[in-house]
């Protein structure tokens, strides 16, 4: 009897010590926090759901990206000097106040309009240059709707003997591309640049029209 009880008691002691040891070395649990309402008396700071819309870094006013610059779609002309700027211009009869000087005045809102077709307009560059590009422009405002005009480009160094650099052809003017027609040709020495307009598609005018004509080396 003593022997059995001795074994039992020793076993109980051993198990108890093991359990106590395991409990001692076990990681303590993190207990759930206790929530407790606290009444704050007096004037309470307001609870504000605050939103602040921040401004971007900018050095100056910018064009909103959602409105692409329409000039990006324009026909590009050379970056050099426009040799025709401010130079003298002659033409045949023109309509009302729309005289030929308007094509070299740098103002796209003014324009030349011939009294009929065909119409000849000549720019005197007032010096001889080696040129290779001309640009014929109308007002780019959408109200100047798309149209075609047919014309020839000729050049001369003496104002009497002209060489055709661009034969008669129908050219498209479209405000979406800036109402610009660019004509390139082989470099050639010239003082006078002559345009002979032969046709037009728009019914809004009686003759040929040009707001600016530009000439480049």
């Amino acid at each position: 009897m003593n022997k059995i009880l001795t074994i039992v008691f020793i076993a109980v002691i051993a198990v108890s010590l093991i359990v106590a040891a395991i409990a001692f070395f076990t990681e303590p649990e993190t207990l759930e926090p206790i929530e407790r309402e606290v009444l704050i008396e007096g004037t309470a700071p307001p609870i504000v759901d605050l939103t602040v819309l921040e401004a971007p870094d900018q050095a100056g006013a910018e064009r909103p990206g959602i409105f692409p610059d329409p000039e990006e779609a324009w026909v590009k002309l050379p970056e050099g000097d426009n040799l025709a700027a401010g130079k003298s211009v002659s033409s045949g009869e023109f309509t009302e106040v729309y005289d030929p000087a308007n094509v070299t005045d740098g103002d796209l809102t003014s324009y030349w309009e011939s009294k009929g077709l065909p119409a000849v307009l000549t720019i005197d560059l007032e010096g001889t240059y080696t040129i290779q590009t001309v640009g014929v422009r109308l007002n780019p405002a959408p109200i100047w709707e798309a149209r075609t005009q047919g014309f020839t480009v000729q050049v001369s160094t003496d104002g009497e003997n002209f060489t055709v650099v661009a034969p008669d052809a129908r050219h498209e003017f479209n405000p979406d591309s800036g109402n610009i027609v660019r004509i390139d040709f082989d470099p050639i020495s010239a003082r006078f640049v002559k345009f002979i307009f032969t046709e037009k598609s728009s019914g809004r005018s009686n003759g040929a029209q040009a707001s600016e004509i530009e000439v480049y080396e």
Partner: peptide, 18 residues
């Protein structure tokens, strides 16, 4: 215990008069 149990957190919820 071999490691000290963390203090039980008490969260105070402010109840403003307004």
């Amino acid at each position: 215990r071999s490691k000290t149990a963390p203090e039980r957190e008490v969260i105070e919820i402010p109840v403003y008069e307004y």
